[in-house]
């Protein structure tokens, strides 16, 4: 097992995954249209079709996810990094394999969307909220297909690192020490880190739950019905617990992996603090949601919270920093 087998697995993922993501896009477009039709006309006929499309889409997302799991297992099986003898004297291992998490690079948004679809199916409490989220998830699917497709050139950064390793091996020159050293750090503190396997998925599952809170807050303003506040709160609870735990888990990870690097008050961290305090404010405010003007204040706060969540997610792509893919 080696580089050719890895390349074959990558090629296979693109071949089997691309149709799945295309079907997701098509079904999502129909789902979006049906959602809008239901929001406008409120006919049960539209909703019945809509919920079927959501079921199909969830199934497709899960199927695609299974393909991604398979690919990640193939990376583990095919790529072995055997460190040069000199480096082995400085590190505690002789070799490493990539245990790549399923929520990095172009797989992030996919994972978030899949979790959100599952939450929606579990919820199924109010048709209007389902239809509203149906529109949001259609947009998600479109963004995934065009901007963050995990099946089109899968895991480009991991791929470049693996390619770099085999190129250095092939050349057999001194660069192998540098490449091996870099990969040791990446594998130990990033890909295979227990924090990488807990911190991001907790946050993405929290985000998925908080989409429902957002939708319910919008309907709180429109319908002024206590039921929407209850739905918003019901999904804010798991969202907030996971958000809190997920964010806090990032702290020891940052200390371990980044040590003295410039990570404190990094934009993503500032964004996460902003998001967490806003959700804390929302949960505080809703205790008295039925008093004076607290009802609309709570609903607006819930909407602002979601805006801060989206902004925090996007910060990786729009503002430079240690979490970021953008260079200053």
């Amino acid at each position: 097992m080696g580089f050719p087998e890895y390349l074959a697995a990558r090629e296979s993922l693109a071949v089997i995954g691309q149709p799945v993501i295309t079907y997701i896009l098509i079904i999502s477009l129909l789902q979006g249209v049906l959602s809008l039709l239901y929001i406008i006309n409120r006919k049960d006929e539209y909703y019945n079709y809509l919920i079927k499309f959501i079921y199909i889409n969830t199934g497709l997302y899960v199927l695609g996810f299974i393909f991604l799991i398979w690919f990640h297992i193939q990376i583990y099986n095919t790529v072995l990094i055997e460190y040069p003898a000199v480096l082995r004297q400085m590190i505690p291992v002789d070799s490493s394999r990539f245990i790549i998490p399923l929520w990095i690079e172009s797989e992030k948004l996919y994972f978030w969307a899949m979790a959100a679809f599952i939450f929606v199916l579990v919820m199924q409490r109010r048709k209007d909220i389902i239809a509203f989220i149906g529109v949001i998830l259609s947009i998600f699917s479109g963004l995934i297909f065009f901007l963050s497709n995990p099946f089109k050139e899968p895991l480009p950064v991991v791929h470049s690192e693996i390619t770099m390793w085999y190129s250095a091996l092939g050349r057999g020159d001194g660069t192998i020490f540098q490449v091996a050293g870099t990969l040791y750090g990446r594998i130990t503190y990033y890909y295979n880190s227990i924090y990488m396997w807990t911190h991001p998925p907790m946050l993405f599952i929290a985000y998925a739950s908080l989409i429902i809170t957002f939708a319910a807050c919008v309907y709180m303003l429109i319908r002024r019905d206590k039921l929407y506040d209850e739905i918003a709160y019901r999904y804010a609870k798991p969202g907030y617990i996971l958000l809190t735990a997920g964010m806090l888990i990032g702290y020891p990870w940052a200390i371990e992996a980044w040590k003295d690097s410039a990570w404190w008050w990094d934009p993503k961290i500032s964004g996460s603090i902003m998001m967490w305090v806003l959700y804390s404010a929302y949960l505080h405010a809703r205790i008295y949601a039925n008093r004076d003007k607290m009802w609309s204040a709570t609903a607006y706060l819930g909407i602002i919270c979601f805006a801060s969540l989206v902004l925090t997610y996007l910060l990786t792509y729009i503002v430079p920093g240690i979490h970021s893919v953008v260079q200053p």
Binding site: P267, A281, H284, A285, V319
Partner: peptide, 21 residues
Amino acid sequence: LTTLILFAIGLVSVYGIIYYN
């Protein structure tokens, strides 16, 4: 009061993002 303070901390964080950028 607590809600307002938390909101204000959120605004300080937004300032941090803009300033860092």
